[in-house]
Design a protein around this nucleic acid. Structure first.
Lengths: 233, 233
DNA sequence: ACCTGAACACCGTTCAAGT
DNA sequence: ACCTGAACACCGTTCAAGT
């Protein structure tokens, strides 16, 4: 239809919000949160740092846009057909995997200032909420249930991202977990009896499975006592 | 017993880790995370920035120490006498209140690199874990249960801290919640039906009560199906 | 042993000047 | 309208030099 240059020359592509955000994600994935710099970004886009400010108001907006670019695609799936529980599990795993692949999302989430209502996490909240409604949770309890699920997801995301980054800084994940387990076992038995007890479980533990088990715990709490009857007749 | 100057002259007090950490907490409380600067800290302590490095290895260690100074006192309480559920609620509320009073703790938590095993949150994990054991959770499920509770607490803490900071930046909390609710109500009904539905509940909602309700949800999940009998006989 | 403060190698952001 | 890049006002951290 429309005419197209057969060889688009990379250097002359005009700057745009999308190109900037894409470059930011790439930079964040490659060199981490500390590597996202207006100077580095400008160099990658073959301009000066000032040019970026024409398309983006500042670093905060850039980070929000980068997060959204990573999170939004994981919510593209269709929930029809699955049970609400399974839809929530799938949703949660999608966010988990996205943050596992882009740890900077997890560590950035907590730090960003809340513009009223507009956050990449609102998409997740909405999707969870719809499934909570499908679970037939009473209206007054829906907000609590959806918030609890989202908070848990964000909490794990942050922890897991921090661990991923720490593991990356050291050698690999297995070695890192071993180091943590070893450190736990050397704790003062009077002060840390429980932590020492469970240190052994750290080695063969699967972050993803553990995450899902926590989701199931909350789901069980949400639906507790209204399945086949109440505990007190 | 030992002789003591009656008027300790403030200016000559020697520098020490404790004084540095105390000044850091004060600075963080007063001017926020962005306000903690080695230069500002040095000025408050009447020295040069270099002096601080003699007592502290860098900014990360300083932040960890500041967090620990705020969190550790909230765990001083004694759990004997209370039910495990109540002990966990008290513990969780202590952390919640500490982070509510010092929002920078919540936003800092996720970002800090994990030194193997040594984190201010390990204290919380240990305390939760002991109560999970007291709940008679099977050994293989203890780690999952304690982790889920901790992750939820951290997730809420981060969210709440971000909200507190956003509210502080705007006018007050009530006005901020109103602004969020208004923004939610203006969302596209096709894309955000649930969020629009619950926007009304945001106004009379109590963060602390909501937090506790989430804890109870997880506790219910942890103890589900083993109180007065199983759902399937 | 502990402190000082200038200096180094960076930041985010702004803004006159260009096209 | 959009881009350039020097300049401003900062950072964390280091380190020779002092006491």
């Amino acid at each position: 239809m429309a005419s197209r240059k057969s060889r688009p020359e990379r250097r002359q592509e005009p700057l745009s919000r999308e190109r900037i955000v894409a470059a930011a994600v790439e930079l964040l994935d490659t060199v981490g949160e500390g590597g996202l710099t207006f100077r580095a970004l400008a160099e990658r886009l073959a301009t000066g740092p000032g040019a970026i400010y024409w398309h983006v108001t500042g670093k905060t907006e850039l980070l929000l846009a980068a997060m959204d670019a990573v999170i939004a695609p994981t919510l593209a799936g269709d929930d029809t057909g699955a049970t609400p529980q399974d839809a929530i599990r799938a949703l949660a795993l999608g966010v988990f995997d996205a943050i596992d692949a882009h740890p900077w999302v997890g560590t950035t989430l907590a730090r960003l200032p809340r513009t009223p209502g507009k956050s990449p996490m609102l998409r997740v909240f909405e999707r969870i909420g719809r499934q909570v409604q499908a679970l037939r949770v009473p209206e007054t309890a829906q907000f609590t249930a959806a918030s609890a699920l989202l908070s848990y997801i964000l909490g794990v995301a942050g922890q897991n991202a921090a661990n991923t980054l720490a593991a990356r800084a050291n050698t690999d994940r297995a070695a890192f977990l071993d180091a943590v387990a070893a450190a736990w076992r050397e704790l003062d038995p009077d002060q840390y009896p429980f932590t020492r007890d469970v240190a052994g479980q750290l080695r063969e533990h699967d972050d993803r499975a553990e995450f899902l088990a926590g989701i199931d715990l909350i789901l069980a709490g949400i639906t507790a006592g209204r399945a086949d009857g109440r505990t007190r007749p």
